[in-house]
């Protein structure tokens, strides 16, 4: 039972990451390679503020969101206007720098050892302790994040974003401030990814340098494209499918196998095959990666 709880919590955290990545990639066409870094920035901000600075969980979580958004603006301002391949590359570099800084800035991040003892959230005198309590907390956060993204995708904001994604010049010609809108959306993506980082920190009570690098980026992209662009349902389906995959291996008795690398090979293969045969993902809309 405990294991099922863990699985559900992980699917929800990844679903939240996927839906915020979808806001960038699916809706706005911003191919962000920094998403895992913002996730890490959120986790570390939460850990540092609660463990070292002694702030309460809620303030730390809000500040984690703000930090993710702020750094996204900082990195987005010079790079988003460059567009295309330059942006992809800059974000790639950014994610490597973030990983490197987390490991090397020992005075702040405790280096490779990570930070332990992140407190669990509490409301009034009620302290979330049990697995069920945590499941409830993550479920509430997930509901909130999905609600916000549903609001985005069912408002005039969606049309403006899709216009930018499909043809920036036409979007400009219709009065949309393309650069500003992209920066705002990128900041939101960064903020929500950081919020997911806070959720993860509360759940694991511990943050460490691995888990926010290239492998996580690939995993998130695979989750997004398996589920499909511009789809709230897809943001659940992708993580659910990919999280259940290792369980399948356990089930068919592949104990001695190098599951980590089999998984990675599968993600790579999935990305290729999806682009070839089903760019809209399993349940996504036809929109997204246009021809």
């Amino acid at each position: 039972m405990e294991y099922l709880q863990h699985l559900l919590i992980m699917v929800m955290i990844y679903a939240c990451l996927t839906v915020s990545l979808d806001l960038n990639i699916g809706h706005a066409g911003i191919l962000s390679f920094g998403h895992a870094s913002f996730y890490g920035i959120g986790a570390y901000t939460t850990a540092i503020l609660t463990v070292y600075a002694g702030l309460d969980w809620f303030t730390a979580m809000v500040l984690a969101f703000a930090m993710g958004a702020f750094i996204a603006v900082l990195i987005g301002l010079p790079t988003l206007r460059l567009g295309g391949d330059y942006f992809i590359l800059a974000l790639f570099g950014f994610s490597l720098i973030v990983t490197s800084l987390i490991i090397n800035m020992e005075w702040l991040t405790n280096g490779p050892f990570g930070i332990r003892g992140v407190p669990r959230p509490s409301i009034g005198s009620y302290q979330v302790q049990s697995g069920y309590g945590m499941l409830g907390f993550i479920a509430i956060m997930t509901a909130f994040i999905f609600f916000v993204h549903w609001r985005f995708a069912s408002s005039p904001m969606k049309a403006a974003l899709h216009a930018i994604r499909d043809d920036e010049s036409v979007a400009m010609s219709l009065g949309i401030n393309v650069v500003r809108t992209k920066i705002i959306v990128f900041a939101l993506g960064g903020g929500f990814a950081a919020l997911c980082g806070a959720m993860g920190a509360f759940y694991f009570r511990f943050v460490s340098a691995d888990g926010y690098g290239l492998q996580t980026i690939i995993l998130l992209w695979a989750m997004l494209f398996v589920g499909g662009n511009c789809s709230l349902l897809g943001a659940f389906v992708g993580p659910a499918v990919l999280m259940l995959f290792p369980e399948l291996f356990r089930f068919i008795g592949g104990q001695g196998w190098d599951i980590g690398h089999i998984q990675e090979a599968l993600y790579g293969l999935l990305l290729i095959l999806l682009m070839m045969f089903r760019p809209q993902g399993l349940v996504g809309n036809k929109v997204g990666l246009r021809a």
Binding site: F152, S155, P156, M157, A160, H162, G175, I176, T181, I184
Partner: peptide
């Protein structure tokens, strides 16, 4: 409708 600028576009 993309051509209409409105308040609801702001997040």
């Amino acid at each position: 409708m993309v051509g209409v600028r409105q308040k609801g576009e702001a997040p």
